[in-house]
Write a protein that binds this DNA or RNA. Structure first.
Ligand SMILES: [Mn+2]
Ligand SMILES: [Mn+2]
Ligand SMILES: [Mn+2]
Ligand SMILES: [Mn+2]
Lengths: 223, 223
DNA sequence: TAAATATTTTAGATTTGTCTAAAATTATTT
DNA sequence: AAATAATTTTAGACAAATCTAAAATATTTA
């Protein structure tokens, strides 16, 4: 019934999905950069995906996934994020170590495996980076979150996601005792360097840089 | 440092390893049959593996893995069997369902992943089919086992492995309440059809066919 | 031991995914 | 609106893994 896709095709489908979330129309060079390949190779693949009805594409006009393409992308992302959750929760991997491995695991084809894994993990809704995990029908849980830099003063909020998965960020957050789920509020914003003073519930306040604040996402808590 | 092998190469290395356990020298057609491919394709791959010093091979003379080749094979088999154990113990897969999935999972490259998985699973020594799991240095646990058909009369023994992974065998064993670890002895052997009468500890005796007896392996228990 | 048969290897294609270099198209400047 | 620059596509090549058909070698049988 449903077509089979190679690992190469799946990697293209996934990256196009991610790019079209922010971009209206995805373009060749973006994909080439993201996949560490050349524009000519991308064009080759675009033709193939178009022919497989996975992609809406007219040459020189940019492109987006078709509905069918989005479904495939979401299935791959589901696998990626569930495996990341598994690695962190069950195998004690750090945040910054899981992405590469999940990049391979996401291509394992068994649907039964991934649905059983989901149950085994307790149907998690968010991966270790706070990114939403699509359910087995491809539906994404909605998380109303904003950038920490945009959080109103003295409003309690909970850290819900991070915008980077680097070891460096993880180091810093560990040291500051900030993790996903941490409750905090912003006491003051400084115009000089755009740093902000935050207070974690039950701790004394401290300053964080603009750069860090921009990398953190929070879910405002109602009172 | 250590070379990288493609999935195709790994599948050849693994099958050659298995074949050379029973065969003195492995030959082209055997490999072709086992991998569902053609003899010509096998020859192509043999040249490549020889050149990579993984295989001792002279044309028309048969072949065996080199020491380096065996190490690689054992690493793949370790992954395959640990994943099978995971699927059965943690995700409630049946015996007969795990092989295909493990065939894919065995090619995931992260050494850290597999060593952590090993710990997570409690360092199992045998997979769900009773096959030994190599440790992280490639050493195989030794299991002194014999075919049930060769077990002496009235000697207590424990089922340790099965020689097939089919749904059909699993069905039969479930019905007879035989699983790995089951303790039994042979009461009588019948010359007419080579069937044998066995008695599971705490149950009444019954007959099993020669074919089934030949598919079961047991570890004789001292006294 | 010579003929017949089976096995293995080579020769030449094919598919997939990639690349470089050049051509075509689109976008941006003057 | 040209000219210039950037992007995208095409043309042609290559490596990996596979295949079929034919040739080479080894094994078995008579
Ligand atoms: Mn990937
Ligand atoms: Mn993630
Ligand atoms: Mn495999
Ligand atoms: Mn097994």
């Amino acid at each position: 019934m449903s077509q089979h896709f190679s690992i190469a095709e799946e990697n293209y489908i996934k990256i196009i999905y991610h790019l079209q979330q922010t971009d209206d129309n995805v373009n060749t060079n973006e994909v080439a950069a993201a996949l560490n390949t050349k524009a000519a190779s991308v064009t080759d693949m675009l033709k193939k995906l178009k022919q497989k009805k996975i992609l809406n594409y007219e040459k020189y006009q940019g492109f987006r996934l078709s509905e069918a393409g989005e479904k495939i992308a979401l299935a791959i992302i589901r696998k990626h994020r569930l495996w990341e959750f598994f690695l962190v929760e069950k195998l004690q991997f750090g945040w910054d170590e899981v992405h590469e491995v999940a990049e391979e695991l996401e291509h394992i084809t068994s649907k039964k495996l991934i649905d059983r894994l989901d149950v085994f993990l307790g149907n998690p809704k968010f991966d270790p980076h706070g990114d939403p995990i699509p359910d087995s029908n491809g539906k994404l849980p909605h998380q109303p979150q904003i950038n920490l830099i945009d959080l109103a003063l003295n409003k309690l909020a909970e850290v819900s996601a991070v915008g980077s998965q680097s070891k460096e960020l993880l180091d810093l957050l560990k040291h500051k005792k900030i993790r996903i789920g941490t409750q905090l509020e912003v006491n003051k914003k400084f115009a000089f360097d755009h740093s902000i003073e935050i207070k974690i519930v039950g701790q004394t306040s401290f300053n964080i840089s603009q750069q860090l604040a921009q990398t953190l996402f929070v879910k405002p808590l109602n009172k």
